[in-house]
Write a protein that binds this DNA or RNA. Structure first.
Lengths: 184, 184
DNA sequence: GCCATCATGTAATTAGTTACATGATTAG
DNA sequence: CTAATCATGTAACTAATTACATGATGGC
């Protein structure tokens, strides 16, 4: 028996990769881009983390190289064992649910500011959140224009709703700051 | 000139600690508990990370020991420099906004499942989210019963609203699974 | 006296970031 | 021919987790 089944720690990067590869076989380069796209709100990883993990995934028999492309690129696909590992993680795996969200942390700290600092900081966060909302809506449009819809389409809806709530909350927070009617 | 001002990387743990100490001076032990409480949705840290960072904070003049208690406990408070550092981080600091949220990742992967697996996984997530909502409401009640309100009270409202939206979304997801009328 | 909790640390490991390094292909 | 992008990797460092380790205090 291999010890791969014993690995019970979080290993979210591993499962994020298995998930992306389940949607469609990809090269490391493509995966890097996909981590910066739809998955960015859930988990981020850069290429220097992705390539070694792909190699480990292949070593553990959870993924395999299914083709080689133009610039020495290798396309990986998830194996049956990989699919089973992912399934097991989603339905059985006990979640650690540890969160690290710098934006949320900032919003906590917003409450410690007063006056002008507070107003400016909230305005900045609100601008960010609104830009985020625009991005999400564009992503949704792009997703709907695609010939075959992404399985992750519903999570875009969720992200949109959450961001709307955040914008509303920030707007309310802004209204609690004593007004400064004439800037400059 | 010291190089402390140059440290421009994220260092969110540092600023989370400065924030908590701004609310009230605390021991490392108390901070550990507070990270598992209100701040858990934004940033988590265990004691083995907190104690060394407190020492570094004191070394950099951003916090200081203001009292010693019964069991060799030391109470830290934020210094003026620490307050300024936190203010700077919130209003000026350019955010990395990297997120790592295992729950969100799981919800992405939910979309890759079908049938019974999918239904069970969504039910589990929904139960978790509802329990979370109950926790948040209890925390809100406790916060309101306090003699002086926590500055972080508004962020509890936000967390509650977000969790409500999540529960609604999971409920919708559950309804997309073809029904299985008789279990067992 | 014993157990729970308070209270603080360090060591070993794993995860994640930043910087370095290289080379192929394609569009202009 | 040259710049952008495709494509992959490694090295050095910092952050975070898990496990180990110790001891004080207070309630029973």
């Amino acid at each position: 028996m291999s010890d791969s089944a014993l690995a019970c720690a979080a290993m979210s990067l591993r499962h994020a990769l298995l998930g992306l590869l389940t949607v469609r076989p990809s090269t490391g380069y493509e995966l890097t881009q996909r981590f910066s796209g739809s998955l960015a709100h859930a988990w981020y990883a850069g290429h220097s983390q992705i390539y070694p993990e792909l190699a480990r995934l292949a070593g553990d028999g959870l993924a395999e190289v299914v083709g080689e492309g133009p610039r020495g690129s290798r396309t990986y696909a998830v194996t049956l064992a990989g699919r089973e590992e992912l399934r097991h993680w989603v339905v059985e795996g006990e979640p650690t649910r540890t969160q690290r969200n710098e934006t949320a942390l900032r919003w906590f700290m917003l409450e410690l500011l007063e006056g002008d600092d507070r107003r400016r900081a909230i305005e900045r966060e609100l601008a960010n959140a609104r830009a985020e909302l625009v991005d999400l809506r564009e992503a949704a449009e792009r997703a709907d224009a695609l010939p075959e819809p992404s399985p992750f389409r519903p999570t875009l809806v969720l992200a949109e709703r959450l961001t709307e709530v955040m914008c509303g909350w920030l707007q309310e927070q802004l209204e609690t700051v004593p007004g400064r009617s004439d800037p400059g």
